[in-house]
Each structure stands twice: as C-alpha cells, then as structure tokens.
Write a protein that binds this DNA or RNA. Structure first.
Lengths: 108, 108
DNA sequence: TTTTTATATCGCAATATTACGATTAATAGT
DNA sequence: ACTATTAATCGTAATATTGCGATATAAAAA
C-alpha cells in the first residue's frame, strides 16, 4: 500500500529510518559531500554542481533540512546552507553501538 | 519521473545512498535491532515480532540482504539471518569521516 | 518603481515502494 | 508418497518519490 506503519515502531526506529531515508538518494549524498568540500556555507551553486533542475535541488535540500542533516540561514536574497553536525553524530553513534553489540561468534 | 540519475553520481555516492536507503524504513531498522538483540542468527520469528505479513518481511529481508546489511544461510527448511558487520563498519567510517571534515567555524 | 537574483512551491507524469494475500518451491517429518 | 513448515515470489492496489517546467515570493540592485 506504500504507506508505512510508523505507529508500530519505536520513536528511535522512526527517527533513524527518517535520517537514513534522507541519505537514501545519491543526489542528497552528493549535496552533503559538496557542502563538506566547500566547507563554508552555500546556497545554490549546487544547481551548477549537479545535473538537476533548480526545483529538484530545492526539494532535496528541503528533505535534508527536514531530517536535520543541514541547516539553512537566510542571507539577503539567498540562503546559506551548511552541515548540521549533530545529526551526523547521532548516526555515527548509532552505528558505532551496532558494531559494539554485534556478536561475531554467534553468526551463521 | 521517480527515476534516479545514478550515472551522474560517483560509485561511492551510489553505494552509500543504497545502504542508507535500505535503512530508510522503520521496519528494516526494527529487523536490524531485533537481530542485534537475539544475537544469534534468526529466520522468521521476525514475523511474530513485527506487525507485518510474512511476504512483507521477506521483501524487507531481501532489501537488507541486497544492501549487504545482513547475511542469510540456509539451514534445512529455514534460513538463518544475521548482521553483516562489515557494511555497518563502512557506514560508521563514512559518518566518522564526515564529522572529522566538518568545519564548525565556517558555518552559517 | 522596475528589474534582477535566489529559492520555494505547484502541478504533473513516470516510476518506485510498501503491503498484502495467494501461490510456489523446497526441505523435514510422518 | 503425503503433509507440514518455512520462506520466496507473483500479482495487485495504494501511496510515495523523483524530476521537471512554470509560477510565486521575496529581497537586492538598478
């Protein structure tokens, strides 16, 4: 039915999957990597960087922002985007914990 | 158009986004967490654990397996699934690198 | 005030995802 | 051989995502 039964899962499961989903598209990963490379905050010369229309980039930015992966600050007529480190820290911690709790011996 | 322009992105960007996409659903995150909890390998008492039909769970397992997040071994009539640590290690490393390269000072 | 410039949003078409029941396939037990 | 049991696959309906062009909005520049 294409509709996810979110209410059956824990808040953390929904949160993690929402963040992961936002990274579940190569264009959005490319945007993140571009933001990392240019270091300082950017508006949308991302449009010049990626082979996608302005409206498409804008949508991707919206999803990244909703997931908390980037921040956006209005600066005159443009908007300055940058990485929101804290959300990436959540992910890093989550996967670090997974690796810690995996028991190699008890695998098939 | 709902079709992703994969050829415009790097192999790593496609790889990371594919793994993230597989984790972009709460049911699949729940499956991973269940596998972690029971430690030893499982077939599908996951069906008893989650409020989803057997065919739906099977699909989710397939996607997790395709992304390399879990491994499956045939054991008689059932299949034993377990976490594939190496792929989680890739993610952990990727996010650790992101955090290392973020420059807090140069943010908006 | 008019014109740029930068972004967001709307509406649409194509495709993908999610979920289920029904069916199939394959092994184990009787 | 027959019957469970386990899990994958098929068909399908409902919904979501992706992407674009066109339009809207809002601030800066002329």
């Amino acid at each position: 039915m294409g509709v996810t039964k979110k209410d059956h899962f824990t808040e953390q499961q929904n949160k993690i999957s929402a963040i992961a989903k936002a990274l579940g598209h190569p264009a959005r990963v490319a945007i993140i990597e571009y933001l990392l490379r240019v270091n300082t905050c950017i508006c949308s010369d991302i449009v010049d960087e990626l082979p996608l229309a302005q409206s498409t980039i804008s949508q991707h930015l919206k999803e990244l922002k909703n997931a908390g992966l980037i921040k956006g600050n209005i600066e005159g007529t443009s908007i300055c985007y940058c990485i929101d480190e804290s959300t990436f820290a959540v992910l890093k911690q989550y996967f670090a914990n997974i690796i810690l709790s995996v028991n190699d011996q008890k695998c098939c």
